[in-house]
Design a protein around this nucleic acid. Structure first.
Lengths: 268, 268
DNA sequence: TCATGTGAATTCCTTCACAGCA
DNA sequence: TGCTGTGAAGGAATTCACATGA
């Protein structure tokens, strides 16, 4: 999950609810796929299925954009693609810089999904002088010293931070001072930014922790329930291995401890 | 942002709201940092600031876990760390497999945040025979053929998919059939999974698109507003470069077109 | 006295169900 | 007839504001 917003009190961005905005890219992706298969129209039902939402929600979402469908028929795929693209601002070019070219930064630089949706990687920036000049994804990495110049020369308003946590706040300040007003933050830190700057956060370990929470609940429901789930699926699961038995036993034991004790969990 | 849930109708996981669950890892991170600095107690106000939420929300969130604070004083840092860890299921060991060892998969394998929070990378799996045996993050990559065996031998219940979009659905099916019940999906596809399996989705391009939406709005408010924002910040922004002027002009022009036309946006 | 914990109010989001139009 | 578009209902999440207890 990504989280974190700033600027603009959640809803009200000319009336399109934040939750709807977050789903538009999903619809767009599904529509693009249909478009590639030259499908001319879709019903809300079909499109909703493709996007993984329910159809009432989808129709409500689209109703905020306008009346782009045809009753009794559905939506014109190409037309909707255009309308949503325009609404999201993807009909214009968004130069983006990626700061921090480690494993993750390189992955982002190579990620095709950017270019295909109006985002252009204008520069890759890293603090390590040894990286400078090295090609990543067909682009030379530039040194942090150039950051301000790059931002200004390219009119960059969106920055992606993929640095270690310790560097993120300072990088964000430099980005913002140079003119960036939207930041996608992969570093596991809460950035503090001035009003008017949007931050979105993507945090890998948070996502896993949320999964662990639900996983724990499933396991807690007892082996019977777990087995039922596994087999109901139609995926011939050999029931085995759903729960690491030793692990669970340990957890339960700890849970039973007297209240006061505070085991040293979480080394870092 | 990450999105996507399945299983369990949103709220009610023994009463802890989904929105609260999603914030627990944030609190945990902030608390861990305090713990490392040997801070003994925090107030809801301080902790909320560190986690980037407001204090009323934080107190309400904690109230779902129990009464772990002391009125007039605050929360015991170590104790809260323990309680939240336990609630999230992090006091037990979660073996995880990563499937798809490209740039992103490698980045994930190297990501320290996993190990430190109870997640243990049990195996790296890739379909490319040429990758097999190659060490990534100090571990040999294993071939997809081994997938089922690895899952079962290690009691893996959480899988991370970092493959290309085309492979994701099939990989998820194999993971699930072998016993995985939670999936973190980085591939830009909607996975269809049986009931009882949780899927969370992390989609880089979706996050950028959401930022672009807000960025467009800011620009649309007129240069005056943009400039005001830039300077109000205290970050001496040289006002320049907030909007790529040519780009915007083009977008606006297109917007003014007669309704029927459908420009071919989005090559892919 | 001071910060937690929580009912109550509010706002936001989702879902229902059907009127209205092609 | 069939599917969109949308008021209205229902739920969930956030925020307020203050009683409560260390």
């Amino acid at each position: 999950m990504a989280t974190g917003r700033t600027h603009r009190p959640a809803t009200r961005s000319r009336g399109i609810p934040e939750a709807t905005v977050a789903r538009l890219p999903l619809y767009l992706r599904a529509l693009t796929a249909l478009s590639e298969r030259s499908v001319p129209t879709v019903s809300s039902e079909e499109l909703a299925a493709a996007a993984g939402v329910n159809s009432a929600k989808l129709r409500k979402d689209f109703s905020y954009l306008g009346s782009y469908g045809t009753r009794g028929v559905g939506y014109d795929v190409e037309y909707l693609v255009y309308q949503i693209s325009r609404e999201l601002g993807l009909t214009q070019d968004w130069p983006v810089v990626i700061v921090g070219i480690g494993n993750l930064g390189a992955a982002l630089a190579n990620y095709g999904g950017f270019a295909s949706r109006g985002f252009r990687v204008a520069a890759l920036i890293d603090a390590d002088p040894a990286m400078a000049g090295k090609p990543v994804a067909g682009m030379p990495v530039q040194h942090t010293d150039e950051l301000e110049k790059i931002i200004e020369d390219n009119g960059v308003s969106i920055g992606v931070i993929a640095t270690p946590a310790g560097a993120a706040q300072q990088v964000s300040e430099r980005l913002i001072a140079a003119g960036v007003t939207s930041i996608l933050n992969f570093a596991p830190t809460v950035l503090s930014v001035p009003e008017g700057v949007d931050v979105r956060k993507v945090d890998l370990s948070i996502e896993l922790q949320i999964l662990a929470f639900h996983e724990q609940r499933k396991a807690g429901e007892g082996a019977a329930a777990a087995a039922a789930v596994a087999s109901s699926a139609g995926g011939a699961a050999p029931a085995a291995a759903v729960v690491p038995p030793a692990g669970r036993a340990a957890a339960v034991a700890r849970k039973g401890n007297p209240e006061g004790d505070v085991p040293a969990v979480m080394p870092a």
